[in-house]
Design a protein around this nucleic acid. Structure first.
Lengths: 142, 142
DNA sequence: CTTGACGTTGACGTAAACGTCAACTAAATG
DNA sequence: CATTTAGTTGACGTTTACGTCAACGTCAAG
């Protein structure tokens, strides 16, 4: 019998509102137990929630996150179900790999911009330094 | 005088609708030239657009993307402006580094799920294989 | 000259992901 | 027992990022 959580405990621990948790429940992402009317979140609920939050951070919609969570529960399905799940997983993986590339490129650009600014701030050579007009990717002329 | 683009050319090339481009213009993210009433997109506009799209893919809001684009144009500002820009860049970089970690963890989990499914599909050992109930992260019991 | 093909500006609609009340219950505490 | 404190269920509001018309301009082709 691992830990249990009230709704407030979970919200404080993970930095979301109670409304958010109830919303996730409405959307079928969580299904906490009840003590009468009150929700009781198990360790598994908590784990699912952290996955939801991470999925959200990486840009998945709640519906997509729900799909993914469902896939993990599709262990019971027949071969057709599993094949479908496999396809979905592969799609998500591809999307995330693109995501990763995007993040890395964005990071590279932001870091470039940062160091340029810091150079200017450091040796105060705003006029002589290469213009800060744009990423290096942005053509200066039309 | 590098290339120019009509709105259709740009939409087809980058896979967005004309409505989207006009929306970005409304939001101040793009400011294409005009030939009478018609928009003419320069290579620089195109570059900005690709940055907008990438920013969107990594989860930034249009407002945030606008901020970032503005920062790159803040080359002219005084030291205070630049210091502010520096801070903003640093914030975005931190957020993206978290993003990257999230993406990598998500990828790891999805890959795990995928191979589990493929194992079951391959040697058809659904019952004996470790249960597919969850990521390995998801506790099976409450 | 009229028909497309392509463009334009409003203006309203919509889906997602909650926020924000209101009105109520239930347990604990002074 | 009256009041916090924590929780509940509707139900409507809000923001973001466009979609989806409607109504109109423009120019080359048949």
């Amino acid at each position: 019998m691992s830990r249990q959580y009230t709704i407030r405990e979970l919200t404080k621990e993970l930095g979301v509102t109670a409304r958010t948790l109830r919303h996730y429940e409405d959307e079928g992402l969580l299904a906490p137990a009840r003590n009468g009317q009150q929700r009781i979140y198990s360790a598994r609920d908590r784990a699912r929630l952290t996955l939801v939050l991470r999925g959200r951070r990486v840009g998945f919609t709640l519906a997509e996150i729900g799909e993914i969570l469902d896939l993990y529960d599709a262990k019971d399905g027949g071969a057709a179900q599993l094949a479908h799940a496999r396809k979905k997983f592969a799609e998500r993986i591809e999307a995330l790999e693109q995501q990763k590339r995007d993040v890395e490129e964005s990071l590279a650009e932001l870091r470039l911009g940062l160091t340029m600014i810091e150079n200017v701030l450091a040796d105060g050579a705003p006029r002589e330094s290469p213009r800060l007009t744009g990423f290096g990717m942005l053509p200066l002329e039309d």
